[in-house]
Design a binder for these strands. Structure first.
Length: 760
DNA sequence: TCTCCATCGTTTTTT
DNA sequence: ACGATGGAGA
C-alpha cells in the first residue's frame, strides 16, 4: 500500500509523469492540490530529486503554506527546502539577490496601489497632464497592462506613432519608471517584469536558476499573464520539466492581464506536451455540480469537458428572492444561526460570497446584530488604512530614505508645521539637483527661500536620523513603538476620544502584534527578523492569507477571493442582473466579458460542497439610489429540477402573509418607499431568537392594492409574450395598468385583468 | 498653514 | 451614500 494508491488513474498518471512538459486540465474539485502534493512527494521519494530543485508556484501565500504542510505530511522531511511560493514572493526572493545587476539597489521597497496613485499624481502634475482627459486610474491600468505584456516605455513609444493619446501614455509611463528607480522602488508588476529582465540580460543568473529549478509546477495556470508565462518558460527552457495545472472555466483574472491563451495554447508552445484531464469531482453534491455544469455550458469559448461525480445527489440548490438587501442579509444570518443552533453546522462551515466588496456591509450589520462571528476578507486592506500606512511609512523611510513617497507622506504627520509651500520648495530643489527628497532635506540650509520652515525640516531630519541609528539594534516591534512614542501618534488619537479614533488605535495595536508574530515566525525558521523582511511580508500578503482555519467564523468575501477554497455551505448573494453580472458587463459590446462573468459564477457555485443557496433582492440601494434588478441570468440558466424555490414554507405560516395583516403591509410599503434600515429591521422575521424556520414569503408584495399578486421588480409570465419583469404599476379607474419588460418582445403596457400575468 | 464645507465622481474583481 | 478634493476663510 503506497500513498499513490488512493489516487484515481488520471491523477496517478499525472503524478508519475515527471519528465517533460505536462498540462493538467483539472476541473473544479477534481483534486489538483492532491496531485501536486503527491507529485512533489513522488519526485523526492521515488525519483531522488533534491527538494531544492523543485519550484511550485501557487496563487496565494495561504495556498503555498497549505501545500508545504501537505507535502510535509507525505514525505516526512525535506519539504521545507522546496520552493513553494507565489509568483510575487518568488520574484522578490530572486530580485533581492540580483537586482543590482540591472541597476537597482537590493534594498528596494515595494509600492502598493496607494503609493502608485500618489506617484502618478505627482507625475501628472510634473508633466502637466490634464487629469480630466487622462484619469490617474486609467493611466495606471494602462501602465500595468503594458507591464503584464512586458512592454517597455520605449516599445510603447514606438507603437504610438501617429497615436497622440498612446504617446502621452508612453510619456507618463517612462516618467513613472524613472521615478520608481529614483525612489528605489518597484510596483507589483515590476516584480515580475524586472525578474524577466534580469534573467534575459544576465545569462549566468538565468543559468543558475535553470539548474536550480529542474522541476517546476504552476497552479492556477489559467490566471497567469504573459509576463508570468515568459518567466516560467525562461526558467523551464533548459530541462522542460514544467507541469502546469489549470481550468479554463475558472479563468477570472483577465482584467489584470491573465492570458487564457497560456492554457489554451500550451501544447503549441510546448510541442510534445502531455495533456491529462481530471474530470471527476470529489467536492460537491450532484445537484450542485449539475447546476454548475449547466451554467458554464452557456459559454462558447471553452475546452469542452464535463465534470462528473460519484457523490450523493444532495439537497437541491436553494434560490430565494427578497424584497430588498436587508431582508436578504437577514435571511442568511437567520439560516446560519439556525444551522448552528440545531448543531448541523458550525459558523466556519459557511461562506458568504458576493460580486463586489461593497456588498459585505449589509451582512456585517446583520451578523453583528445576530451575534454571529464573522470575518470579512478583502475590501480595504488592513495595511492600506491611514493610521497603519502612516506608521509603515516611518518604517519605510528608516529602511529606504530614497523612497520619496514615504518620506513626503510622513513629513507633516503628525503636524509639524511643514506645509505644501515648503514641501514644494524642497521638491523643486531635489529635482533641480537630481537628488532624493530626503537628501534635499538633509541639506535644507542650501535651499533658498525656506525661511522659518528650515528649523522644522531640521527637526524632522534629526528625528529620522536618530531612528535610523536605533534601527541597527532594535527589533521591529521596539522600533515601531519608538516611532509611536516619539511622534505622539497614539496620544493624539487618544485625545480625540471618538469612536473612530479608538478604532484607529486598535488597528495600530494590531500592527504591533503583527510585528511580534513576524518576529516569532522568523525565529521559528531560524532566520533573522529584519525591518526589510517585515515590510516585504506586509507588501505581499493578501488578506486571504490571514484566514485562520481553526477559528470558528463565517467568512465573507468576493468570489474572486474564494478561488481555490471550498465550504460545506455557500451563500451566493446578490444574484441579480446589474449586480452579478454587473451592469458594466451587461451593457458591454464584448461578449467575452459576459463569459468571464459566467466563469466567475461557476467558480462561486463550485465552492460549495453540500449546500448552496443563491439569493437576490428585488430592489437594492446602489450609490444612494434604489435600483430594481431582475433575477440574475445565471440563476435562470440553472434548470428548475435542481432548484428549490422554498414556496412550501410560506404556506405553513399564513400569519406571515401580507394580505392577512394590514400592519405588515404598511411596514412593507415603508420599506419599499424609503429602503431604510429602520423599516426593514422592525420586520425582523429572521432574528435568531425568533421561531425557527420562519421564512418571509417572497410573495410579500408591494402594490397599491392587495388584489395583485405581483409587484414592481417581479418576474412574471404572459401567455403570449413569455417571461418579463414588471417595471411599473399604475392604478387606473377599474384596473391596474402594468408595464412589463419582456425578454423577447420588449416593453409592453397592459391591464392586469386582461393580461393574466403569472408571477414566477 | 490649517480647517471646514461644498462639489464631484465613483465601483467591479487583486498580487 | 461616501470619500476624496479643492477652495474659502480663520
Amino acid at each position: 500500500m503506497s500513498i499513490y494508491d488512493t489516487l484515481n488513474p488520471p491523477q496517478r498518471e499525472a503524478v508519475f509523469h515527471t519528465e517533460g512538459p505536462l498540462l493538467i486540465l483539472a476541473g473544479a474539485g477534481s483534486g489538483k492540490t492532491r496531485v501536486l502534493t503527491h507529485r512533489i512527494a513522488y519526485l523526492m521519494d521515488e525519483k531522488q530529486v533534491n527538494p531544492w530543485n523543485i519550484l511550485a508556484i501557487t496563487f496565494t501565500n495561504k495556498a503555498a503554506q497549505e501545500m508545504r504542510d501537505r507535502v510535509d505530511r507525505l514525505v516526512g522531511f525535506g519539504a521545507e527546502s522546496v520552493w513553494v511560493s507565489t509568483f510575487h514572493s518568488a520574484c522578490v526572493r530572486i530580485l533581492r539577490r540580483h537586482i543590482d545587476r540591472i541597476g537597482y539597489d537590493t534594498s528596494f521597497t515595494i509600492y502598493d496601489t496607494d503609493d502608485q496613485k500618489t506617484l502618478i499624481k505627482d507625475i501628472c502634475k510634473r508633466l502637466d497632464i490634464d487629469t480630466k482627459q487622462y484619469k490617474e486610474r486609467y493611466l495606471l491600468s494602462q501602465i500595468s497592462h503594458a507591464k503584464d505584456e512586458l512592454i517597455t516605455p520605449d516599445e510603447m513609444e514606438r507603437k504610438a506613432i501617429g497615436d497622440f493619446r498612446l504617446k502621452k501614455i508612453a510619456e507618463v509611463y517612462r516618467e513613472y519608471q524613472t521615478s520608481l528607480r529614483k525612489n528605489n522602488a518597484l510596483d507589483f508588476d515590476d516584480l515580475i517584469m524586472k525578474t524577466v529582465e534580469l534573467l534575459q540580460s544576465c545569462e549566468d543568473v538565468l543559468e543558475s536558476y535553470q539548474e536550480r529549478f529542474r522541476y517546476i509546477m504552476v497552479d492556477e495556470y489559467q490566471d497567469t499573464n504573459s509576463a508570468q508565462f515568459k518567466l516560467v518558460s525562461l526558467l523551464a527552457s533548459r530541462y522542460e520539466n514544467l507541469c502546469v495545472v489549470g481550468d479554463d472555466d475558472q479563468s477570472i483574472y483577465r482584467f489584470r492581464g491573465a492570458n487564457i491563451g497560456n492554457i489554451l495554447g500550451f501544447e503549441r508552445v510546448f510541442p510534445g506536451a502531455k495533456v491529462i484531464r481530471l474530470e471527476q469531482n470529489y467536492r460537491s453534491t450532484r445537484n450542485i455540480l449539475n447546476a454548475a455544469n449547466h451554467v458554464i455550458a452557456n459559454n462558447v469559448e471553452r475546452k469542452a469537458k464535463t465534470l462528473w461525480t460519484e457523490n450523493d445527489e444532495g439537497a437541491k440548490v436553494n434560490f430565494r428572492q427578497f424584497l430588498n438587501g436587508f431582508e436578504e442579509a437577514e435571511y442568511v444570518a437567520g439560516e446560519i444561526s439556525k444551522a448552528k443552533r440545531e448543531g448541523r453546522r458550525s459558523y466556519g462551515d459557511s461562506a458568504i460570497l458576493y460580486r463586489t466588496n461593497a456588498q459585505s456591509r449589509l451582512f456585517e450589520e446583520k451578523f453583528l446584530l445576530a451575534n454571529i462571528p464573522y470575518k470579512i476578507v478583502g475590501g480595504i486592506n488592513f495595511y492600506a488604512r491611514k493610521e497603519v500606512k502612516d506608521l509603515l511609512c516611518y518604517l519605510k523611510t528608516i529602511e529606504n530614505a530614497r523612497d520619496d513617497i514615504a518620506v513626503r507622506r510622513i513629513i507633516n504627520v503628525p503636524k509639524r508645521g511643514i506645509g505644501a509651500t515648503t514641501i514644494g520648495k524642497v521638491q523643486d530643489y531635489a529635482e533641480y539637483m537630481d537628488i532624493s527628497f530626503y537628501d534635499a532635506l538633509r541639506v535644507a540650509e542650501e535651499i533658498p527661500g525656506l525661511g522659518r520652515g528650515l528649523s522644522k525640516l531640521d527637526g524632522f531630519v534629526t528625528f529620522i536620523q536618530m531612528l535610523k541609528s536605533k534601527a541597527a539594534y532594535m527589533t521591529v516591534k521596539e522600533l515601531l513603538e519608538e516611532v509611536i512614542e516619539m511622534t505622539g501618534y497614539v496620544e493624539e488619537l487618544r485625545q480625540e476620544n471618538t469612536e473612530e479614533a479608538r478604532a484607529r488605535i486598535e488597528n495600530i495595536d494590531e500592527l504591533i502584534s503583527k510585528t511580534v508574530s513576524y518576529q516569532e515566525a522568523m525565529e521559528a525558521e531560524g532566520k533573522p527578523a529584519t525591518l526589510e523582511g517585515f515590510l516585504e511580508e506586509i507588501a505581499l500578503v493578501a488578506d486571504i492569507d490571514t484566514v485562520d482555519p481553526d477559528q470558528d467564523y463565517v467568512l465573507l468575501m468576493t468570489i474572486h477571493s474564494a478561488k481555490g477554497l471550498e465550504f460545506p455551505t455557500v451563500y451566493l448573494v446578490g444574484m441579480e442582473d446589474g449586480i452579478f453580472p454587473g451592469y458594466l458587463t451587461i451593457s458591454s459590446e464584448d461578449p467575452t466579458e459576459m463569459e468571464e462573468e459566467r466563469r466567475l459564477c461557476y467558480v462561486g457555485i463550485t465552492r460549495a460542497r453540500q449546500e448552496l443557496t443563491l439569493t437576490a433582492a428585488q430592489q437594492r440601494m446602489t450609490r444612494g439610489e434604489v435600483q430594481y434588478n431582475r433575477v440574475s441570468r445565471f440563476v435562470r440558466e440553472i434548470p428548475r429540477e435542481y432548484v428549490d424555490l422554498g414556496h412550501q414554507i410560506q404556506k405553513k405560516r399564513p400569519q406571515m402573509n401580507a394580505f392577512g395583516s394590514g400592519d405588515a403591509l404598511s411596514q412593507m410599503k415603508m420599506a419599499f418607499q424609503t429602503g431604510s434600515a429602520g423599516a426593514a429591521q422592525r420586520n425582523n422575521a429572521y432574528s435568531p431568537s425568533g421561531p425557527p424556520g420562519v421564512f418571509k414569503p417572497r410573495d410579500f408584495q408591494v402594490t397599491k392594492a392587495d388584489s395583485l399578486d405581483y409587484g414592481v421588480g417581479d418576474t412574471v409570465r404572459h401567455i403570449k409574450f413569455g417571461v418579463g419583469i414588471v417595471k411599473n404599476i399604475v392604478e387606473g379607474g377599474r384596473d391596474y395598468e402594468v408595464t412589463v419588460d419582456f425578454d423577447k418582445t420588449g416593453v409592453k403596457k397592459m391591464f392586469a385583468g386582461f393580461a393574466k400575468l403569472k408571477k414566477l
